[in-house]
């Protein structure tokens, strides 16, 4: 960006072309229901962890889909896998598997931090 003589502060935008969506791909290959989320926010509203922190599974999922992985890497650990989100999801997203796979993916691709 800097080379072109102007700058947009990096935190402002999703650089969709530069971002790598390998984590999201890893998950949706193994858990296709990851793709059907409609961002209703049910999961994060009922979330046990969300009671204590700003953890939002809905947000983490969309961030992974956009390749904004770094915020997810640290936060995905906070999930307690209690399963309330799976129970309330109107789309039948298998959220517990999504979280488990995301954790796996982040362990598998530690170097891919953008």
């Amino acid at each position: 960006m800097d080379r072109f003589g102007f700058s947009i502060s990096k935190g402002r935008q999703i650089d969709y072309d530069a971002n790598s969506r390998h984590i999201a791909e890893f998950i949706s290959e193994r858990e296709p229901s990851f793709r059907v989320c409609i961002e209703c926010g049910c999961c994060s509203a009922t979330c046990t962890t969300g009671n204590f922190t700003s953890f939002s599974l809905r947000e983490l999922q969309i961030l992974m889909k956009r390749g904004e992985n770094e915020k997810v890497r640290e936060n995905i650990k906070k999930c307690m896998l209690c399963g309330k989100c799976t129970l309330v999801c109107p789309r039948g997203v298998n959220t517990r598997n999504v979280v488990t796979l995301a954790r796996q993916a982040f362990q598998k691709f530690p170097a891919n931090a953008v």
Binding site: E39, C40, G41, C42, C43, S44, A45, T46, S56, R58, V88, P90
Partner: peptide, 22 residues
């Protein structure tokens, strides 16, 4: 914009609703 996921009742009979403002 957010689906209500849970409703409970407060001590003074009001309803506590949980949602995410997505």
């Amino acid at each position: 914009r957010g689906k209500v996921s849970e409703v409970s009742e407060s001590i003074n009979n009001r309803l506590v609703i949980k949602s995410e403002d997505t």
